[in-house]
Write a protein that binds this DNA or RNA. Structure first.
Lengths: 197, 197
DNA sequence: ACAATAAGTGAATGTTCATTTATTATAGAA
DNA sequence: TTCTATAATAAATGAACATTCACTTATTGT
């Protein structure tokens, strides 16, 4: 007869968080090309080998960081989500949530932009990300059925109602767009004109 | 008395072109992170040292490649440019030019996307790029003055009338948007609804 | 034919890379 | 307190990196 013990020295979640934080900071400051595991380790004040306790390899670290951020952004977007409101108001609320979250966390956003336009983007299972945005996508589909918005290819719709948030939030692309209630509403009115029937 | 000779072996422009071509191919295939000078040299069938005859360093090679591509895209966009047409027609023509050029040269477009969202983007003097797009920007300004399109922040305007071309052309972002006359015109009608007064 | 000079190169440079190995530190059940 | 599994690490590894070096090849006016 055998008795199995489970004696564990628990992983330090604070350490994991500081590795992710260091990854984001470094990638934003010097880019993927220059962000080595040792530099990330130094920034997080851990040994390079420690990173390999929490992540399989460098790719795993970067992909996990990306998904973690996408989850946060998705949740921010859906704050106070209420699809009993008129469609237009539901969308505008998400716009505002998105703009203000990105404005308060520019590093998170910048990381995802750089990541998703690089070949790292292909390492991500899209479904792992899309699930965080599902409710708002469903709202659009309902809008088409109720003949409130144009019945066009879904890619076209998202181009005009989601991407403007990302483009206008990108200070590199839009240096003259100041993020405040008025400007968001002005921009939103163009988006709404584009998609409304 | 001295006699100075000026005897030159001229640089082989074909070689320079093959280095740029190799750079684009490699960056698209494996990304900036993995594209080393030696790999680019091998792809171009030259010695790594040869690259340093044509370019100061690796950054110079990448930035030059980017500007070269932007010039080509800008010129494609402005093919048959005619600002005596109604504003709407001028813009639609550019949309079609843009879509079809990108569709025929997906590698060029993909390189610029990856480049401009990476820290390499900061190495480029924006004016070196903007000049290739100037005529079409002026058309928009005229449209505002003539009260044909909305008088809003210029960043908002470009978000709805230029970026959709880039988003919809990006197969990674829009896998369900097929590029043909009909679909381009449908997408353009949303853009026009957004910006028209 | 030859002098002059730039184009072009393969190999070597020292550095940095991602990852592994060998070892120590520590938490917690018995 | 003792024991054990895992966290954590410093140091080591071989491969790959950007760039330079010493050299050869090609071109062209004289």
């Amino acid at each position: 007869m055998f008795i199995y013990y489970r004696i564990v020295r628990y992983k330090d979640e604070h350490k994991k968080e500081s590795i992710i934080k260091a990854t984001i900071k470094l990638v934003n400051d010097i880019g993927f090309v220059s962000s080595s595991v040792s530099k990330i380790a130094k920034e997080a004040s851990v040994s390079p080998a420690t990173i390999y306790i929490y992540y399989k390899n460098k790719d795993d670290l970067l992909v996990s960081t990306y998904i973690e951020i996408k989850k946060k952004i998705g949740m921010a977007l859906l704050k106070d989500f209420d699809d009993t409101l008129p469609l237009k108001d539901t969308l505008l609320r998400s716009w505002k949530n998105g703009f203000f979250y990105i404005a308060e966390n520019p590093g998170l956003f910048q990381f995802t932009e750089q990541f998703s336009y690089s070949p790292y983007g292909e390492l991500v299972d899209k479904k792992d990300v899309e699930k965080y945005f599902e409710p708002i996508i469903k709202v659009l589909q309902t809008g088409i059925e109720q003949k409130i918005i144009k019945n066009v290819n879904f890619d076209i719709l998202t181009t005009f109602i989601f991407f403007p948030v990302m483009i206008l939030s990108n200070t590199r692309l839009c240096s003259n767009f100041e993020i405040n209630e008025d400007n968001i509403e002005t921009a939103f009115s163009l988006a709404w004109d584009a998609i409304k029937l």
